[in-house]
Simulated assay, not measured.
Amino acid sequence: MSKQPTVGKRGAATDLRIYSAVVNAVMSHRLPPGTRLGEAEFCELYQVSRTTVRKALQRLAHDHIVALRPNRGAVVASPSPQEARDIFATRRALEREIVPLVIRHGTPASLARIRAALQAEEQARHSGDRAAWIRLGGEFHLLLAELAGNAVMQRFMVELVSRSSLIIALYENPGVPMCGNDEHERLLAMIEQGDTAHATALIDHHLIEIEGRLHLGASDRKLSLAEALAGC
């Protein structure tokens, strides 16, 4: 007879599920910056204790996705304009190192994974699923970090991509695509050709273009927590 999971293990699994749901909702722009994350709502949505919810929120705060305010609860973080500039500058520096590593460690299997990611992104774009398109655009960059073979860079990229999604949600020009699939296609072509110099220059330009499409301003979009996490 199989051993049943302990309450602690179930709690840990739910903690991770809440964390992943919030990160995915942020990356898909379903949880805009400033959205209040009520503990009671999480407890009702996931049928867990406040202790489990607090563990998930603390982890999200550690990764700068959530801000914990004393006596006021948790909200999705709202990066300042200077934070936005700093985060994109850090991403450019890091991804300029990642791309050459992807080329150096490239295999037919890794190139096939990149191609599959691009196809999923393009399918979301053609279907008009903007939330999925935004999320998959971020995941494309995370895949490159994984394929670079440097676990430390990969961990940094998870945080930076999530924080970039917050920035885009806060400062984007409505209706303007932030991460064009054509540049991802061109980047893959350069990776396949082993063209390190041009691939590195393209990733730098790509991120500069994304940052350049942002504008300062506050978002007043509101969405309930239940709506944002539906299906997660």
Rank of each mutant, 00 (worst) to 15 (best):
M1W: 04
S2W: 01
K3A: 03
Q4H: 09
G8K: 07
G8N: 05
R10W: 02
R10D: 03
A12V: 15
A13R: 15
L16V: 10
L16P: 14
S20F: 06
A21E: 02
A21S: 12
V22H: 09
V22S: 13
N24D: 03
V26H: 09
M27I: 12
H29W: 08
T35H: 10
T35R: 14
G38A: 09
C43F: 04
C43S: 01
L45F: 06
R50I: 00
T52G: 02
V53F: 02
V53N: 05
L57Y: 00
R59A: 15
L60E: 07
L68Y: 13
R69G: 04
P70Q: 01
N71R: 10
G73R: 15
V75R: 09
A84M: 05
I87V: 13
A89H: 11
A89F: 07
A93N: 13
L94N: 00
E95P: 09
E97Q: 15
L101M: 13
I103K: 10
I103G: 10
H105N: 15
S110V: 09
R113P: 08
R113S: 09
R113M: 08
R115D: 11
A116K: 14
A116Q: 10
L118Q: 02
R125N: 07
R125F: 07
R125L: 07
G128Y: 01
W133L: 13
L136T: 06
G138M: 11
G138Y: 12
E139S: 14
E139N: 15
E139P: 10
H141V: 11
A145P: 06
L147M: 12
L147R: 13
A148S: 12
G149M: 14
G149D: 13
G149F: 14
N150P: 00
A151C: 02
A151V: 10
A151L: 10
V152A: 00
F156G: 01
M157D: 07
E159T: 14
E159R: 15
R163P: 09
E172M: 07
P174M: 04
P174S: 07
G175D: 08
V176E: 11
P177Y: 11
M178N: 02
N181W: 02
N181T: 11
N181D: 07
E183C: 05
L187W: 04
L187T: 01
L187Q: 06
L187S: 00
L188T: 05
I191R: 13
Q193R: 13
Q193I: 07
D195Y: 01
D195T: 12
A197N: 05
I203T: 03
D204F: 14
L207V: 11
E209C: 11
R213Y: 04
L214Y: 01
H215W: 05
L216D: 06
L216M: 10
A218G: 14
S219A: 13
D220R: 15
D220Q: 15
D220F: 15
K222L: 02
K222W: 06
L223P: 03
L223G: 10
S224N: 07
S224L: 04
A226T: 14
A228P: 08
A228S: 14
G231I: 04
C232D: 05
